[in-house]
Structures are given as structure tokens and as C-alpha cells.
């Protein structure tokens, strides 16, 4: 690559990373809006999450007496790790240099890093709810993470690469192929995304009902800018999963060269895909009920089974020889 192009690529990568943090609240606003409409409410504005974040950022921050320094570090680490993970997922264009820094396994690792600190922060103050949230989060994630990795492995084995870029390019080069393994991997990844982002059958993002909380229980003691960062990280994570699903399984439209037209089209395509996914998520949350905690493992076992079948059907049905 000539030097000018490399510079352009880094700039686009940087812009894309900024786009992640900028768009993340919008996706949440969209999901809430659709959900409100489905419930025959008018709902808050699409941009309400931005206003919430702004409010939290300018409010005074309180820290409990019993908190250790880790409590104040954790929001930054969680936010940064999630953001870096998101930055490696191609949003509008392929062939970006950030994708080389981290492949899918590193992405899962970075999310795990964020979760590790989130759970520790929950336990730091020493309240009952914090520990409860941390314990439950680790239960959910210990089942969701292998399902996610296996689903991702299915893609990686098809493309012979763990780099998201290569997976997408491979998929684009093959054109439209009906792969049973992709179908299963998609199913698994959807379930994992619901669980990991704390969406409805596993967790409810809209409640502080004490005994059912998972994610909120860990954030209970946070306020002000710390809370803003944690919330923002959760929004980025939702966007990350959305883009992962939208762009890896349906990569059409993503920009393959660094021209304004291609990039603009890529952005439009991904926004359209995300709008559809967000509406689907809102509908799913609308029709499903929250499960009690010990049903969640069954839900995640289904994800594991789907991912496993994806791998097997890849080996059995798609390779031959």
C-alpha cells in the first residue's frame, strides 16, 4: 500500500472508531422507540440516550466510603476495552489497519476484559446486590462466551482465517451461498448477543427490580460520569454485536475502497441493517417474557448446541472430500 493510502486507512479507522461511540446511543434510542410504538406509547425521542449521557456527565459523582481505587478505575477500563473491541469490527469499510491488530478471538478477549472489571467493580463496594450481579454475570458469560467463540470458529473455519476482514471478504467473494453452518452460527450469535447485552429473556435493561437484575445490579453504586461511562460502554457493546451480526452475515454494501461514495454507501447500508436488527430486537423483547435466572442456562445451552451444530454441519455438509 502506498503511504498516502495507509494514512487514509488509519484516518478512516479512527473515524470509524469515533462513529461507534457516536452511534451507540442512537441504536438504543431506536430500540426504545420501536418498543414504545409496539406498546402503543409514543416513547421518548430518538436522541434521549444522548441527553441522558450528557446529564450524567455533568452531574456530581459519588463514590461509596467502602470503595477501593479499583472502583474508580473500572469505568475507564470497561469503556476503553469495549471501545477498542468495537473499533476492530469493520463498520463501513474493509481493509482497515485496526482489523489487523485484533482478530475475532482478541475481540472476545477484550470483551472479557471489560466484563472482568465490570464484575469486580460490582463486588468492590461490598453490598449484597453487587455480588449477586457479578455472580450472575459470570454465570451467563461463562456459558455465552464459548457459544460465541464456537459460532465465530464456524465462520473462521469456512474462511480459513480468524480475521473479521478475511471472513467478510471471503463471504463477499463467494457470493450468495446457502450455508447451513452460517445459519446455525447466526442463530447462536443472536442468542449470545441477547444474553451478553443483557436483553430481555436473560436480563431486563429497563428495570431495577431487585431480584432479577444482572447488569444493573453491578452498576448500582455508580453515579455521575462513572455511570455515564458504564452505560455508554453497554451501548457500544450492543452496537458492536449488532454490527457483528449485520456485517459478518450480510456483508453486502460495506465499502471496499476508500472513496467517499463507497464509504457513504457503506454507512447507509450498515445503518439500514442496524435499523432492521434494532426493530427485530425490539419486537423480540416485546413478545418475550424475562426468564428466571435458572432458565437462562437452558437458553444458552441452546446457543451452544446451535454453535456446535454449526461446526458439525460445516464439517459434514460443506467440506466433503
Amino acid at each position: 500500500m502506498p503511504d498516502g493510502l495507509v494514512l487514509a486507512a488509519w484516518l478512516i479507522a479512527f473515524a470509524q472508531a469515533l462513529l461507534y461511540v457516536a452511534l451507540a446511543p442512537l441504536l438504543v434510542g431506536w430500540v426504545r422507540k420501536v418498543k414504545a410504538r409496539l406498546q402503543n406509547r409514543r416513547g421518548a425521542s430518538l436522541f434521549q440516550p444522548y441527553a441522558d449521557l450528557r446529564k450524567l456527565l455533568i452531574k456530581e459523582t459519588r463514590v461509596p466510603h467502602t470503595a477501593s481505587p479499583l472502583f474508580r478505575m473500572a469505568p475507564y477500563i470497561v469503556f476503553v476495552a469495549t471501545w477498542l473491541a468495537a473499533a476492530t469490527v469493520p463498520l463501513v469499510a474493509l481493509d482497515l489497519p485496526v482489523a489487523r491488530i485484533a482478530d475475532i478471538i482478541v475481540l472476545v478477549g477484550l470483551l472479557a476484559l471489560a466484563r472482568f472489571f465490570l464484575a469486580l467493580a460490582g463486588m468492590d463496594v461490598g453490598t449484597a446486590f453487587g455480588g449477586m450481579g457479578a455472580s450472575r454475570e459470570m454465570l451467563i458469560s461463562s456459558l455465552a462466551e464459548p457459544a460465541m467463540l464456537m459460532a465465530v470458529f464456524t465462520l473462521a473455519m469456512t474462511a480459513h482465517s480468524t480475521s473479521l476482514e478475511s471472513v467478510m471478504s471471503h463471504h463477499l467473494a463467494d457470493g450468495f451461498v446457502l450455508r447451513p453452518s452460517y445459519l446455525f452460527a447466526l442463530g447462536a450469535l443472536l442468542l449470545v448477543a441477547l444474553a451478553e447485552c443483557g436483553r430481555i429473556p436473560v436480563d431486563n435493561p429497563a428495570t431495577h427490580l431487585e431480584l432479577t437484575m444482572i447488569h444493573e445490579a453491578m452498576l448500582l453504586e455508580y453515579s455521575g460520569r462513572h455511570l455515564a461511562l458504564m452505560e455508554w460502554a453497554a451501548q457500544v457493546k450492543l452496537l458492536l454485536y449488532g454490527v457483528l451480526i449485520a456485517n459478518v452475515f450480510f456483508p453486502w454494501g460495506v465499502g471496499r475502497e476508500f472513496t467517499p461514495l463507497a464509504l457513504g454507501l457503506g454507512l447507509l447500508a450498515v445503518l439500514a441493517k442496524l435499523a432492521l436488527l434494532g426493530a427485530a430486537l425490539a419486537t423480540a423483547e416485546h413478545v418475550m417474557a424475562k426468564m428466571r435466572l435458572f432458565r437462562a442456562p437452558a437458553f444458552l445451552n441452546l446457543a451452544l448446541l446451535l454453535a456446535l451444530l454449526g461446526l458439525l454441519s460445516h464439517v459434514i455438509l460443506e467440506i466433503g472430500a
Binding site: D174, G175, V177, L178, R179, P180, S181, L183, F184, L305, L306, L309, S313, L317, E318, I319, G320, A321
Partner: peptide, 30 residues
């Protein structure tokens, strides 16, 4: 054999067969 070289209808049959297998698993654990 690579899947991408098969005609679309055969790909579709493979997809359906994989789903049949999946439903067998569902039946087993339901």
C-alpha cells in the same frame, strides 16, 4: 467438494437436511 460450487437447489437441500438434524436435537432435549 466446496459448497459454493453446488447448484442452489442442492445447497437448499443441504440446508434443510441440517435443519432436520437440528430438530432431532430439539426433540431429544425438549
Amino acid at each position: 467438494m466446496t459448497l459454493a460450487l453446488l447448484p442452489l437447489l442442492q445447497q437448499f437441500v443441504l440446508l434443510l437436511a441440517a435443519l432436520v438434524m437440528f430438530l432431532s436435537f430439539v426433540l431429544l432435549a425438549q
